[in-house]
Structure formats: structure tokens, C-alpha cells
Design a protein around this nucleic acid. Structure first.
Lengths: 203, 203
DNA sequence: GGTAGCCTACCTACTGGTCGGTAGGTTGCA
DNA sequence: TGCAACCTACCGACCAGTAGGTAGGCTACC
């Protein structure tokens, strides 16, 4: 699969991945034709197929790269934090900032084209997603045990957080009223502290 | 566009909508062919086209019906509640229960095929979505003013809530560990009260 | 240093199949 | 008779993928 060149061509494979991610993101996997991708890379369709095995395989490669990005930039960096509260805060903020500031098309493709992948490809991506969910659930359980969190349902909390974050790409556009940091702050604030005023005591 | 029959055939149109919604939901709009829909309805493709104008028009009709459902069963019922806290609670619970218990395929199609619609069709659906967002933002502002809510950003809170709810269809499967009511309770709890135990006092 | 052999990276031209949509005919009920 | 509700048969467009060729570079050996 991954062709290697000494160093005269470290680009092509990466360039194809990046370009295809952008196009799948813009037009959708089904509506984007391989000719669209080939044109954008500056190849013919047959030339493109010299580098990749199939459209499905290309999609899988994009998603795998997206998961690599997420795990490298978020999950792996926070997993080792001992205190569950700090771990959650870091994951929450890191995840939001990843999708809001870096906006990797590869991650958006993961979110929007879940059903486009089939069989083993799909299973492998889903397994990596599940790993993150388990991580969140475990963190919530530890927070509850340590008294840092209320007795919320860990699974529901995990999916609520994921929903909040994974929906961002549907509405957030850079250059809006709220800055990247402001959005990250606001969403963290809502998720951690909820909407309601404290039932009693000072604000 | 919408053909009308006196009342001998109130079924066909509705049957087509419902069936097409199911199929678009299962296979995705792009991958579902009009022959798939026609077969499922028990017609040929040409027979199906006797009732509808185009595939896009069919998708628009499905989404419009989905918005009708949502507005009738949720938005219109809670809009008149005077107290903003009770209004929000009712909207939150009603919305979650709609997507979790009734699971109208039409609503799922709205969420998953946003980009499939183009031009005026898209604008009309988006306008109805925007109306709901404005409603939520206004409710949050009233809650803050009345002291029922913390000083969260109303827009961010609205999108956080929408993300949480609109993501449900990605993970919730009936018959799981949590009942419909339990999921509605858990998500309401997380969103209203947040994750943290009584905080020491954030800004 | 020349050349044979081979390889990577592409290209042109095509296939088999699918899909949205339609023209024009048939059927059966009012 | 007239019209709604279908059908058969088809079109043109497009698409994933491929067969088979070529240009140019690297390597090995003389």
C-alpha cells in the first residue's frame, strides 16, 4: 500500500491524501469522482490509480490518517495525565481546539462519511473510535469516584461530549463572533458546569 | 409538485415519503437509487416519477415533513411556555424523546443529508433550523436574565445542546442498557447540571 | 562511457455498469 | 370518454476501474 521513495518523492502519497480529503469533505465521498481527485492532484485517473488501490482504500487511508492526527495531537498527550479532572479538561479542550483551529479535513471526513466504509475497513476505524469512548467513560468513572464529578451516567456523558464536539464542524466558521479560544472556553464551560445556576450559594 | 387526491388516495404520497425516508436513511441519499425506492413502494421507476418531480424534490419533501414533525411535536408545544427554565426543559426532553423514541427517519435524513440539498430547497430547510436555534438562544438569554442560568454564551450553549441531541442517532440503538427515558434523563442532567461536582468557583 | 534491462510514474483510450429521468403506451375506474 | 395511475423500453451522462503503452531515470556490466 504505502509506497516509499527515498526522499525525492515523500510528497505524492501525502499530497493525494490531503487533496482527496479536501475534495471528499467539500463534495461528499459519493458525489466526488475519482476524476475530481485526479484533476486536483494534477494527474489523470489512471495516474492516480497507480498510487492507490481503490476509492474505498483511499477513504480508509484518509480516515486512518485522521485518527493518527487525533491520537497524536489529543489522545496520546492527555492519556498519561494522572488526575482524572485535569485529564478530562485537557481532552475536552484539546479535542475542541483540534477540530476548530486545525480543522483537519481528514477528521471531518471521519465524522461525515462513517457509513461510506464497509467491512474490515469500517471495523478498524470503529475500533479506534471505541477506544476513545472507553477512555472518556473511564475518566468519568474515576472523576465520580474521586468526587470531582456528579453521579452522571459515564456513557451518556461521553456521548454528550462527543456529540457536542463532533457537531462543531456543522456550524463553526472561522472568523465569526467567537474566536477559537472563546469557543473552546464556552463549550468547556457548558459541558463542565452545565447551564443552570447553582441551586444555592454565590455565582 | 405535490399531487393531491380527494381522499381515496391519501396513502400513496405518504407511503412514498415514508418509504423513501427509510431507504435514504439506510443507504444514504446518494447511494440509494430511485429504483430502490420504487421497488420498496411496489412501483416501477416511471410509476414512482408519476408522483414526484425529481429525486431532489423527494428529498426536500422528506425533510420538510421531518421539520413538520419536529415543530408539531416539540417546538410548537413548548414555545408558549412562559417560564424560560421550564420552556428549555420541555424542549430538551421533548427533542431527545422525539429522536430516541419515535426515531422518525425523516428527522435523521435532515441531520445526515444536509449537504445533499442545493439552492432554494436547502435555504428553506435551513431557515426552519435557524428558527429553532434563535428560539434556544432567546430562551438561554431569558434564563440568564432571570437568574435561572449561569452566564454561558447563548449561541455556544444552543449549539452544544443541538450537537448533543443531533448526535444521538449515531450511537443510540433501542434495547440497549439505557431505556428511552433513562437516556433523556441522563442527557438532560448532563446538559443542565454539567459534569463537575460543586465547583470551587470558576470565572 | 555506453548500452541493455528494468522500474517507477505516469498517459490514452476504453469497458461494463449504474443512474436519473422520460417518451409513449396500457389499464381501469368514474 | 376522460383521466389518473401505472407500465415497458429506452436515453444520455457519468463513473470506478483497467489494459496497454511510453518517457525517463537508475543500475549493472562490459
Amino acid at each position: 500500500m504505502t509506497k516509499r521513495s527515498r526522499q525525492d518523492r515523500p510528497t505524492r502519497q501525502a499530497q493525494i491524501l490531503e487533496t482527496a480529503a479536501r475534495i471528499f469533505c467539500e463534495k461528499g465521498f459519493d458525489k466526488a469522482s475519482m476524476e475530481d481527485v485526479a484533476d486536483a492532484v494534477g494527474l489523470t485517473k489512471a495516474g492516480l490509480y497507480h498510487h492507490i488501490g481503490s476509492k474505498d482504500e483511499l477513504l480508509f487511508a484518509i480516515m486512518s490518517y485522521g485518527m493518527d492526527l487525533f491520537e497524536e495531537k489529543v489522545l496520546n498527550r492527555v492519556m498519561t495525565i494522572a488526575d482524572p479532572l485535569e485529564r478530562l479538561k485537557a481532552a475536552l479542550r484539546g479535542h475542541v481546539l483540534l477540530v476548530i483551529r486545525d480543522r483537519p479535513k481528514e477528521v471531518t471526513v471521519i465524522l461525515h462519511e462513517t457509513n461510506a466504509l464497509k467491512g474490515r475497513f469500517r471495523d478498524r476505524i470503529n475500533a479506534r473510535k471505541k477506544r476513545y469512548i472507553k477512555f472518556l467513560e473511564k475518566t468519568f468513572r474515576e472523576m465520580i469516584k474521586s468526587g470531582a464529578a456528579r453521579r452522571v451516567d459515564p456513557s451518556a456523558a461521553a456521548f454528550a461530549m462527543l456529540g457536542m464536539i463532533n457537531w462543531i464542524y456543522q456550524w463553526y466558521r472561522p472568523g465569526g463572533r467567537l474566536s477559537d479560544e472563546a469557543v473552546a472556553d464556552a463549550l468547556s464551560d457548558v459541558f463542565l458546569g452545565g447551564i443552570l445556576a447553582r441551586p444555592s450559594g454565590p455565582a
